[in-house]
Amino acid sequence: MSAETEIKAAPHGDYVGAKVGMWLFLVTEVLLFGGMFLLYSVFRSKYPQDFHEAAKELSVALGAANTVILLTSSLTMALSIGYLRSGKKKPSVLFQTATILLGFAFLVNKYFEWGAKIQHGLYPDSPELLALPKGEILFYGLYYVMTGLHGLHVIVGMIILSVLLVFTSKDIVNGHSFIKLENGGLYWHLVDLIWIYLFPLFYLIT
């Protein structure tokens, strides 16, 4: 509690205000992906069978692995904030590093997944893809755009967390002033949140 009153006294240090701003930003992220979910639902309702067939090409194992990786990274993120709030810098730094590494693991996994598809000639506008039924073309279009946009958010999240890691180690972010880390964490959790929907909608509709 004392921590919070101190923060409030600082100039431009409205703790709740900063969170309100961040949540409003998350709203825009939800609606950005929302446009894609809209397209997904329209195309899926139009070509349910094609989607069903196309999804068989995706590896459930890889998708599940990435789900576990992101869920775990959310845990480490939450733990790092929790530790920092109770003034324990070391474990916080450790868990922040773990979060970034897990994000990296996710991307490596994704790289191999995309790489394999592209090797099979399955990428937007490829002759192999255009030979498939229309619904499958759209399925792969959605797959690349949605997971690509999500991957981009993972990269942005990793950059934000790296900056925060520097801030934490330099005590700019600390047990009394942790709103930046909390907001960075909110962003990271939102990226996880979107994956929670992407996973079943692409990998589990066989």
Binding site: L31, F33, G35, L39, P124, P133, G135, G141, V145
Partner: peptide
């Protein structure tokens, strides 16, 4: 944000030919 994604998709369509707005690709 809905405009943002729409405009991004338009750029993707022009650069990669994804096909969301092209009847020939469904």
């Amino acid at each position: 944000p809905v405009l943002a994604i729409t405009l991004l998709l338009l750029i993707f369509e022009r650069s990669f030919g994804v096909g969301f707005f092209d009847p020939a690709k469904g």
